[in-house]
């Protein structure tokens, strides 16, 4: 079943056309990767999917992104974002906030809940983000006191707290060391049981390891999209093949 359909998406920075008429479908409970050389618009593309792209001055996007039958470009921007989680390149724990507050902030903005219920949500999300065992004794320490990998998992837990059907990840491991990266990859494999994950990565091996589907972008164009196994072993497009063979990029 398709949870997210992108139709004729275009995006600009000022006059610079960075995403050129892209249409893509995403299936429920899968991990889809977006790869491509730097500057190909992969980050911009994923940032259009929760409309965070428009927060940049002079940025503009047109087209449709249909989630569960509704075009998010017709809906209220604040309310759609809570249904689409996002994890950024660098860990973004909110400064001056404890680990617990970081996890719960999204929920707290939406509704007032009893303390016990909030604690349940926090534990549940930190479990899912494979962070609970490491932080359960120091929930009141500042979020910024954790290591980089832990901070990134804290940010994942924070997004999960709103229980979004879709989780967007913009190069989530590029600022992390190999061990922390491996942990997050392992975690993502578990996440796809409940969520649909779309991940941008500059690391082809990572896409091959974790993604069910992979799209290949060059200069704002979608060159090829398909099951990862096919993209990486039997690419149909010459450009894809060259990129995978390391001839450019």
């Amino acid at each position: 079943m398709n949870i997210l359909q992108v139709k004729n998406l275009n995006a600009w920075f000022g006059d610079h056309h960075v995403i050129k008429n892209i249409s893509l479908d995403y299936m429920t409970n899968t991990i889809s990767a977006i790869i491509g050389p730097s500057g190909c618009g992969k980050s911009t593309f994923i940032r259009c999917l929760n409309r965070i792209h428009e927060e940049v001055p002079s940025a503009k996007a047109t087209g449709e992104v249909i989630m569960q039958g509704k075009n998010i470009y017709d809906a209220d921007v604040v309310s759609i974002r809570k249904n689409i989680g996002m994890v950024f390149q660098k860990p973004t724990p909110f400064p001056a906030m404890s680990i617990l507050d970081n996890v719960l902030i999204g929920v707290r903005l939406q509704e007032k809940l009893k303390k016990a219920r909030l604690m349940d949500i926090a534990e549940n999300c930190l479990q899912k983000a494979a962070l609970w065992d490491e932080v359960k004794d120091k929930l009141n320490k500042p979020g910024t006191s954790l290591s980089g990998g832990q901070q990134q998992r804290l940010c994942i837990a924070r997004s999960l707290a709103l229980n979004p059907p879709i989780l967007l990840m913009d190069e989530p491991t590029s600022a992390l060391d190999p061990i922390a990266t491996a942990k997050i990859e392992e975690l993502m494999d578990n996440l796809k049981k409940e969520f649909t994950v779309i991940i941008v990565t500059h690391n082809m091996q990572q896409a091959a390891r974790i993604a069910d589907f992979t799209s290949f972008f060059v200069l704002g164009d979608l060159i090829e999209h398909g099951p990862s196994t096919e993209i990486f072993t039997n690419p149909k497009n010459k450009k894809t093949e060259d990129y995978i063979m390391g001839k450019f990029g």
């Binding site: 965070i52 927060e55 604040v78 974002r81 996002m86 973004t92 999204g106 903005l109 924070r158 709103l162």
Partner: peptide, 11 residues
């Protein structure tokens, strides 16, 4: 990115 993270959470 920290500011964007807050917006992405539906703030």
């Amino acid at each position: 990115q920290t500011k964007e993270a807050a917006l992405a959470l539906g703030a």
